[in-house]
């Protein structure tokens, strides 16, 4: 039963474009789906390796800008040497976005994992801010605050066999497919040798090192996969909204991803999905109830605090425990006391 449930769910979700006629709901589902992909990628770092990376939106944004720039083409002068790229097909631009984001993840992983704890967190924030400043100020390349506009939509094939992802139903299917593939990739990694090594270093880094696990290597691998996946989410986003501006790098988006992951349950496969659905739909429901955006954000902030206090492992583990009929008092419950979290 539980083996088929996820697939049943996928089939159900895949059928949505056939009966959902309200495009606005479809719009929300698409953006939610894209954010879930980003949250899943963050979960790999935050949940499975235990690194609180608060610069994650940088990878999302780099993916978005790379794909937008390659599909639009650009012309810049680097130290008076002109350098230009003619517009590339969108599928190629999206592929490059994944590669560039993954490569950035590798470089940042190499650099940032020299430090841990608070230093790592601040370095990750700084990285995202520097990228944002470049996006704001390198007007020649990024158009700065004027935003990259008229980004083409994805089309595959030509002529009669052209498949366009301009309309909402087709784009929804694309986003859902990418989300399912991302989920499978993460599930495979987590259940592999690399996943167990990551787990070991999350629980006790010194111990993991002493038994011969190359900690930094696994951290860098996790960062590359995570960054590439976030880059893919960014590329999807950019060809859906078809405009990208430097605010895509704002810290608040990282915070949104973090909230999704910890609410759903960090270090669980379903966690980011549950968190993503909640925080994808709640803002729209609040907006429909004519609640001011400020109040919505205050609710977010307070919710985040309450979850850390009362549901530190998130919703999914809580439901699993309820399902399994476990009683408080075992080690799972003990971990839910904030003070008992490691150290």
């Amino acid at each position: 039963m539980s083996r088929f449930l996820p697939w049943l769910l996928v089939v159900l979700l895949a059928s949505v474009p056939f009966w959902m006629t309200d495009y606005y709901v479809l719009h929300i589902m698409i953006t939610t789906c894209i954010f879930i992909i980003a949250a899943m990628s963050l979960n790999l770092l935050l949940g499975y390796t235990g690194q609180l990376s608060l610069g994650h939106v940088a990878f999302f944004g780099i993916g978005a800008y790379t794909s937008a720039l390659l599909s639009l083409g650009f012309q810049v002068n680097v130290f008076n040497v002109p350098f230009g790229v003619t517009p590339k097909p969108v599928w190629f631009a999206m592929l490059m976005a994944v590669i560039v984001a993954g490569f950035t993840g590798w470089a940042i992983g190499k650099l940032a994992f020299r430090v841990r704890g608070a230093y790592f967190v601040i370095v990750s924030i700084s990285f995202a801010e520097v990228v944002r400043m470049v996006a704001v100020n390198w007007v020649e390349l990024t158009q700065g605050p004027m935003a990259l506009n008229n980004i083409p939509a994805l089309t595959l094939g030509t002529g009669e066999f052209e498949l366009s992802f301009l309309r909402k139903p087709s784009f929804y299917s694309l986003a859902l497919a990418v989300a399912v593939i991302s989920y499978i990739i993460i599930a495979r990694i987590v259940n592999s040798r690399a996943g167990r090594a990551m787990n070991a270093l999350r629980e006790n880094e010194s111990l993991a090192m002493s038994v011969g696990i190359d900690v930094t290597r696994y951290l860098v691998i996790a960062t590359i996969v995570s960054a590439a996946m976030a880059g893919m989410a960014g590329a999807l986003y950019t060809h859906y909204i078809r405009i990208v501006d430097p605010d895509v790098f704002l810290f608040i988006y990282t915070v949104t991803m973090v909230i999704m992951v910890i609410t759903g349950g960090k270090g669980t496969l379903a966690g980011p999905i549950v968190g993503g659905v909640i925080f994808g739909f709640v803002p729209e429901a609040l907006r429909a109830m004519a609640i001011k955006p400020e109040i919505q954000w205050i609710i977010y902030g307070v919710l985040m605090i309450l979850i850390v206090y009362f549901l530190p492992r998130g919703i999914v583990p809580a439901i699993e425990r309820f399902w399994a009929g476990q009683k408080p008092g075992d080690d799972e419950a003990a971990r839910s006391v904030p003070g008992a979290l490691q150290k």
């Binding site: 530190p312 490691q342 150290k343």
Partner: peptide, 24 residues
Amino acid sequence: RLRGADIDTTMLVMIGAWIALQNA
């Protein structure tokens, strides 16, 4: 209430407080 909790936990709480305060 978080004394002795790890640094990530307090950080998440402080981020929550920051968002709430700024919007207030």
